[in-house]
Design a protein around this nucleic acid. Structure first.
Lengths: 344, 344
DNA sequence: GATAAGCTGGAAAGCGCTTTCCATCGGCGA
DNA sequence: TCGCCGATGGAAAGCGCTTTCCAGCTTATC
């Protein structure tokens, strides 16, 4: 049914070997005449290589896998886009798997990508802190690497992986320092799920800056939420309910923009003015952060660069080499959702 | 290096055929004893099938391709997510390619996906109106289908394709009727690129409703913009510059939410009140539409459903059958970005 | 008790490609 | 002029898997 290399070779009156050499950058040269004949036969017959067959013969595919929590989340969407573009420039196609930050799904996805023999796997979602969750995944990845696969991580996944490492902790600290500089003294943090490493890093940064300023973070002012709009909304509701009136902190840090969106929505619904009554900040500086109501103060992650670098590391990886780490500074972006506290 | 089926077979003391039959749902049965032995050997050795080899032998892969303009765009992100989930439920992995609404890139992507022998291609981006652009792509898709590939389209790509067809035209008309009902008489439209079919459909819907109400749409009130924030911003700037003061229409329809975001940003920058001075509406009802400043009136596309249906059609497709069309009604969602005109 | 029918396991032939290895040929130096 | 080397084309051996086909059994049937 499909046109095969054999068909092309026959049509051009050459051997399979010659046709193969012409149509794929082989080390061997073929005379111009035969070369032209093969090429025109391929064109005429509408030949398209069978990638699975090539993969089998070459023991290497032209695909790259991307593991993330949710492509529909703007944070991951931007990364997926960057990874896709960089891959495409290298002639690769990208396989995207959304795992919903669920270790089981992630494990399954790693297996599928391994089965596909993707050239590299980019881990774009955060690692899990729980060894019971991270263990099997690390094992699966180790198996993949043992068979020549390359793994690069965006955000820390443990030593041993080439890593694109945005300064989550420092960025969070910087953000808090900026707010302290505005006069804020009482903070609340709506963090991501505790089982995600990135949540812990960002929270650590917050604590670091608060400690520096000799401020404390009461336990009931640290809430956990999914990295989702709804999670942010619910956490905000809990926070406000638990701290009526004057008790509400003057600054709420949502440790991801998508969460911050939910926080803003909940505060708006309750008629709590932002930033008049309370300042709100997010994290990631997702594309639409500046267009929210009000425009959201955040910490900019260079998402495009992160994706690109991850692919660069993946394609440059050499088997025995030391794991590379690309550290990326983050930048605080102040917008209208934060302001000095009213009764500073 | 990798563990192969042969290794498993040897370890279990059975033939390759038996091992294959056990580890993949073959029609043939194998006795429980051998079956168990094979399974435990596979487990012990950490066997993972080689998907490219399976693909070659079976002449069918476990992958599905998704063609869209930009995964980072929330509209496409949501579709990619839905397609990915539905695929994953069917045991397939999804290959996502962003084409930037560029016919050349799209053509290239179709070829790549065909080469990969993906089971199906979901066309999530709009078709092109220009035959010079659409022609080669249709040809490439025809070639793919001739070799057993399945193509399903989200939004019209011409007859012959299984299609998930949201009522773009009717939705746009409905939106305009709602605004007319509020008292608006003078409209401006910031449409998508003319070469995209979806732009034309939506614009046609707008015109239809205006004609019904015996209203006209002056030529200089129809602007073309990329489906992007920046495109929307620039178009809004042009519109406002060309219609100073009282001349500015009372309602601006951006035919995609992402454009509307740019429009809102530009109006805010110029101090033009929304919806006080001018109402703004978008299209798509992207997840964050309700969180913008102000919350955006839009036309809801059931993105999740669209993606799911596209996969369902793709997997249910039978070679000779009549193309299926799933029509999807759209719903106008009124929010704070629209209001009756000031001097109604 | 012999034969047909039904199961099950294995051998082997591909799937479409790459790549080694060999054969051939022309050109060059001595 | 002869022999060698480098360049080039082709034959063929896989890559890891599926699946047909066949052989050997067991069980049912008369």
């Amino acid at each position: 049914m499909a046109v095969t290399l054999g068909d092309v070779a026959r049509h051009a009156g050459v051997s399979l070997a010659t046709a193969s050499r012409v149509l794929n950058g082989s080390a061997r040269t073929v005379t111009d005449e035969l070369s032209a004949r093969v090429r025109s036969s391929a064109q005429e017959l509408g030949y398209l290589p069978n990638a699975p067959a090539q993969a089998l013969a070459r023991a290497s595919t032209a695909t790259i896998g991307v593991l993330l929590h949710d492509v529909a989340d703007p944070y991951f969407g931007a990364i997926a886009r960057a990874v896709g573009d960089a891959s495409s420039k290298a002639g690769l196609l990208s396989l995207v798997a959304s795992t919903d930050a669920d270790p089981e799904q992630e494990l399954h996805a790693v297996r599928m990508l391994h089965a596909q023999r993707v050239r590299a796997i980019v881990l774009a979602g955060s690692a899990y802190t729980d060894p019971a969750a991270a263990g099997p995944i690390d094992e699966a990845l180790a198996g993949y690497r043992a068979q020549g696969g390359v793994v690069t991580a965006i955000t820390e996944h443990g030593p041993g992986y080439d890593t694109v490492s945005p300064a989550n902790r420092a960025g969070a600290a910087e953000l808090v320092r900026a707010l302290i500089g505005m006069g804020h003294r009482r903070f609340a943090v709506i963090g991501g799920p505790e089982r995600l490493r990135v949540s812990q890093e960002r929270l650590a940064g917050v604590r670091e800056a608060l400690t520096e300023a000799e401020l404390t973070l009461p336990q009931d002012c640290v809430l956990e939420a999914d990295f989702s709009r709804e999670g942010g909304r619910r956490a905000a509701a809990r926070l406000v309910d638990g701290h009526p009136g004057e008790l509400l902190p003057t600054a709420i840090l949502a440790l991801s923009d998508i969460c911050a969106v939910g926080v803003l929505a909940e505060l708006r619904a309750r008629g709590i003015d932002v930033p008049g009554r309370v300042s709100v900040a997010g994290f990631d500086d997702v594309p639409l952060a500046a267009d929210l109501a009000p425009p959201l103060t955040s910490v900019r992650m260079p998402l495009e660069l992160m994706g690109r670098e991850a692919v660069r590391l993946a394609l440059a990886a050499t088997p025995g080499a030391e794991p590379q780490v690309v550290a990326l500074p983050l930048e605080v972006v102040l917008r209208a959702s934060t302001a000095p506290p009213a009764r500073a």
